[in-house]
Design a protein around this nucleic acid. Structure first.
Lengths: 199, 199
DNA sequence: ACTGTTGTTGGCAGGCTGCCAATAGTAGTC
DNA sequence: GACTACTATTGGCAGCCTGCCAACAACAGT
């Protein structure tokens, strides 16, 4: 068998980059940073080790790229418009939050920093930014003032609750989706009605 | 000066262990797992590198020991007895949660897995156990059923909210302690009153 | 067909980790 | 107070991993 796949396949940088990123995303999702070697990463992508450095410079840089990309995903989703009664809007916000996180993404890092993330100041910064963005969306959605730092902080904290609930639901299975939804709805409603007005 | 500290100080295993753990705790608190080398750890503890392996076997094992120890701290605290009205008990629970986490500890990992933690299945397991324990305490405190898995899950999720709030308060300073307290009190009250009864 | 561009490879040097035999404090005994 | 057995402690060795760089070879343009 002479042509058992060309030994060297020459691709466009974008394609190759994509291939490597996909492989890295898979490996980093199932094992923590330290336990994934560049040798493995290269093998999974079907490339020589040196190529990783060529494209990303650094193992950590490659990792950050994966994180960055995953962190951006939820913001891409279309956010529903803030219409209807307060209850409806809160419900919509919760629904959006719950729906924007599929099990696959949840299994990686959208769910928070406590997943497969080799912890790092920069990683945290990326996640914090993404979480803050999500908080802003929710705040708009329920009719709060996205410019108020304290309000934003409250909703960011609510985000932690949401990620915790999602973990309980989609990973541990200790809560049904309905229970999860109810918990988040009631909590967010309380925050909007009773906490935010008191600054 | 001839006796500028004996070149070899022979200590009891417990003392030495303690010394190493203290140094490790300090280093791991200020930098992520990967960036702390055993050489550094040994230097900080004033010991030869080999001694770390002798006592803990593994760099990761040493790390786990540090995590385990920090995770246990909050459980040592005395939990107030569940007395008074529901409001009072909720308030006490929140107060306990907020008080049991001093800034120093918070800066490490009591605050959650998102701190200086080199992520790891085992690390997560340790933290999960500690968080679950705390959730059980809170549940007892507010008069819920600690045996009900769903209720426990809800309070575990509340723990995430609490850690998020604490982060906002003690780290970012985006919330005052009063605001943090209020947010947690109202949320927990809602959960106990409106969510838990509906299972 | 041929050549220049550049995507891709393989091997090299430095650093870090885990292991083990050798070394030297220290307590207990006479 | 000397001596010895015990064991805490050290220093260096082997293996692995990472980042770098020069050589190699696909593909495009002529």
């Amino acid at each position: 068998m002479p042509g058992a796949v060309a030994r060297r396949q020459r691709l466009s940088p974008d394609q190759r980059r994509e291939l490597i990123l996909a492989a890295a995303e898979r490996l980093f999702a199932e094992r923590p940073y330290v336990e994934v070697s560049t040798t493995e990463l290269a093998a999974a992508a079907g490339v020589a080790r040196g190529l990783l450095n060529h494209y990303f410079g650094d193992k950590r840089a490659l990792y950050l790229e994966v994180v960055r990309r995953a962190a951006l995903l939820p913001t891409i989703e279309d956010v529903p418009l803030p219409v209807g009664s307060l209850e409806e809007r809160v419900d919509a916000a919760v629904h959006w939050f719950l729906g924007s996180i599929t099990p696959e993404r949840a299994s990686f890092l959208t769910i928070g920093a406590a997943e497969g993330v080799g912890d790092d100041a920069e990683v945290r910064s990326i996640l914090a930014r993404a979480h803050d963005l999500a908080a802003g969306r929710v705040l708009e959605l329920v009719g709060g003032d996205p410019e108020d730092p304290a309000a934003r902080a409250c909703v960011r904290a609510f985000g932690e609750l949401a990620r915790g609930v999602i973990r309980e639901w989609s990973r541990s299975g200790t809560l049904t989706r309905e229970q999860a939804h109810r918990l988040l709805r009631e909590s967010l409603l309380t925050i909007v009605q009773d906490v935010l007005p008191a600054l």
